[in-house]
Nucleic acid binder design. Structure first.
Lengths: 247, 247
DNA sequence: GAGTGGTCTAGACCACTAG
DNA sequence: TAGTGGTCTAGACCACTCT
């Protein structure tokens, strides 16, 4: 039976638990491409949840591109190749890699508490006396650098974060841990840039190469900005793919 | 009263009608930035719908970046600048522009029925005898070209589409009209490219300029592929912005 | 016609925010 | 404490697909 999959008591909403369980079945290849899931009513009964809750879980996975539903036919495991749903759900590079069970390494180029430039202060709604943690990292897959990140983090909201070893810990998880709040949303703007010299050194690419550039702003619940960053992505190595839907 | 906003009978699902109504209030500036909406229970009562239906409408608009919700506080009109939710919802360039009440013009460079290259045939799951419509267009805003599109459309699914005047009609609406089916989903892959010479002429940019490149595949319901395209975007003129959420 | 997902309801209780 | 959104339920009826 599938019923012991979820815990009816508080910690995590049931629809998230159900989505996690389905995602795991897909990623571990227990459920293969094109497998038809049990009908919603049936599956809900097995899991001892209501159909509405199950539908909410399924819709998350449709959004991630892991499932497709066809009216009158059923729910199926999608034929998903490598996909980096960076543009779809607010997940970090680290989370995206982890979900795909890919290994990456992080090298910290710079980590320092600084007084922020005017532009950063505005974006993060900082008071004049607020400091920010400036973080500059390169991430590599199989020894090849693919992504360069420059983050500015509101230090008041994440006290002690300057002590973290970012070769071992991810920024998102540390920001949530230090602040005691959940990251809720973000804005990402995608542009194509010619790689500046300063960045080209770290990405092991010729200056002027076309790269994906992301401008990011991250919020806690309550629309409180806590982090802003510039990201340079080698789009020859790491493409951003989105599975999108119409309503 | 707000109740005449929606039609309880069939044509369009109520949650879409409600979302359209809210979107219009926001875009026409009747509801301004930071305006707090009536509480869900109250608003549902006014619209004579259930709270669940209202929540579904609201979640669409949160996804579009038009509303934000804060637990315990309320629902608010987001502070939205120009945003092109290209990476979030499967809407076409034309629809994106129309929603923002921006004018654009379309110039058709080429429109021809052709026998598709092998790669296109595979992507669209075509039989050897199937033809495709090849369409090459430039779109300009205020006289400035910003986007170049090359589309391959399964002609069997959209009979007669070769007759359409694409300076006046949009591809998505024509594909839906000719086929009698609704476009349901798509996959977009974002890359940064150095602008090839052939494309540079149409975008009025130097060859080699960094541009956003999109590789797109479009599906009807039932996961039937009907169109695939390559799109070059001037990211200095037209940036792709996504408002993203975590669950 | 049998089986599927799509929409909608009317309610319940919980968790968070604010004064 | 009052007011808000977040989650969950148990059911109903409709629309679509396939045989």
């Amino acid at each position: 039976m599938e019923k012991n999959v979820i815990n009816k008591n508080h910690p995590i909403p049931m629809y998230i638990q159900v989505a996690d369980w389905i995602r795991e079945n897909i990623q571990s290849k227990v459920w293969k491409k094109d497998k038809q899931l049990a009908a919603e009513e049936e599956l809900a009964k097995q899991l001892e949840i209501s159909r509405g809750t199950l539908k909410k879980a399924i819709s998350l996975l449709i959004n991630e591109g892991l499932l497709i539903q066809i009216h009158g036919k059923g729910t199926f495991v999608a034929d998903k190749k490598i996909s980096y749903p960076f543009a779809q759900e607010f997940i970090s590079f680290a989370e995206s890699m982890q979900r795909q069970q890919m290994d990456f390494t992080t090298y910290v180029i710079e980590k320092s508490l600084v007084h922020p430039p005017e532009k950063i202060r505005e974006r993060l709604s900082l008071s004049p006396e607020d400091d920010v943690l400036f973080l500059k990292r390169v991430r590599s897959i199989e020894g090849e650098p693919v992504i360069l990140l420059e983050n500015y983090i509101n230090y008041r909201l994440c006290p002690g974060i300057s002590q973290v070893d970012f070769t071992k810990n991810t920024l998102f998880s540390e920001m949530e841990k230090r602040s005691g709040h959940k990251i809720k949303s973000g804005i990402r703007q995608f542009e194509a840039h010619a790689l500046p010299y300063e960045q080209s050194v770290w990405l092991n690419l010729p200056q002027g190469s076309p790269v994906l550039f992301l401008d990011q702003l991250t919020f806690f619940e309550g629309h409180i900005p806590l982090e802003t960053s510039s990201v340079w992505l080698r789009s020859d190595k790491y493409t951003v793919t989105s599975v999108l839907h119409r309503d």
